[in-house]
Simulated assay, not measured.
Amino acid sequence: MLYQIVSLLLEVVTGFLSGACLLRLYMQYQRIPMSARSGNPLGRLVFALTDWIVLPLRRVLPSVGALDTASLVAAYLLQLAEFGLLWLLAGAAGGLFAVPILAGFGVLRMAISGMTGMVIVYAVLSWVATQSVVADVIERLVAPPLVPIRRVLPLVGGVDLSPLALLVILQIAAIVLGHLQAAALMAF
Rank of each mutant, 00 (worst) to 15 (best):
L2Q: 10
Q4V: 04
Q4S: 13
V6L: 15
L8V: 12
G15P: 07
F16G: 12
L17Y: 06
L17N: 10
L17A: 09
S18R: 11
A20V: 00
A20Y: 07
L22F: 03
L23T: 06
L23C: 04
R24H: 07
L25H: 03
Q28H: 03
Q28L: 01
A36I: 10
R37H: 14
P41N: 02
L42W: 06
R44F: 06
L45V: 10
L45E: 07
F47Q: 13
F47A: 15
T50V: 09
D51Q: 14
I53D: 08
I53V: 15
V54D: 03
V54W: 09
R58Q: 12
R58S: 05
R59I: 02
L61C: 01
P62R: 08
S63W: 04
V64W: 15
T69C: 11
T69Y: 00
A75R: 06
L78I: 12
L80I: 07
E82K: 15
E82S: 14
F83H: 15
L86G: 14
L88R: 05
L88M: 08
A90Q: 09
G91H: 08
G91K: 05
A93W: 02
F97K: 03
V99W: 09
P100G: 11
A103V: 07
M110V: 11
A111D: 02
S113R: 08
G114A: 10
M115F: 15
T116G: 12
G117R: 05
M118A: 07
M118I: 11
V121S: 02
A123S: 15
V124H: 05
S126R: 13
S126F: 04
W127A: 05
V128P: 03
V128Q: 08
A129F: 11
A129H: 14
S132F: 01
V133L: 08
V134T: 15
A135C: 02
D136W: 07
V137G: 04
V137H: 07
I138P: 12
I138Y: 02
A143Y: 04
P145N: 05
V147P: 00
R150F: 02
R150G: 05
R150D: 01
R151I: 05
V152H: 03
L153K: 01
V159W: 12
D160I: 06
L161D: 01
S162Y: 10
A165I: 02
V168W: 01
Q171R: 13
I172C: 06
I172D: 00
V176I: 14
H179D: 10
A182I: 11
L185Q: 01
L185V: 00
A187Y: 12
A187R: 15
